[in-house]
């Protein structure tokens, strides 16, 4: 099963479900990472973490740990 932090720049996928702590899941949900939402990996920061993703038209930077809680279809 792929996780969002394994998605390479330029690739996109749909969200299957969220894992991780309650607080983190809620934050991701509010940003629009709900089941079925399309996410595209745009670019990584200078030291590889965090990474910028395109979610529902907005660019959101997530740390590897956060992105690791997003399982992809």
């Amino acid at each position: 099963m792929t996780r969002l932090n394994a998605l390479p720049p330029g690739a996109s996928a749909r969200v299957l479900e969220l894992r991780g702590s309650e607080g983190m899941r809620r934050r991701l949900l509010d940003l629009g990472l709900t089941r079925g939402a399309r996410v595209e990996c745009l670019y990584a920061s200078p030291w590889g973490d965090p990474t910028a993703y395109l979610v529902r038209g907005a660019v959101v930077a997530l740390r590897g740990e956060e992105a690791g809680g997003v399982l992809l279809l």
């Binding site: 607080g23 983190m24 934050r27 991701l28 940003l31 959101v60 930077a61 997530l62 740390r63 956060e66």
Partner: peptide
Amino acid sequence: VPSSFALELPP
């Protein structure tokens, strides 16, 4: 431990 970042990068 470090918590979350989740920062929006505006255009």
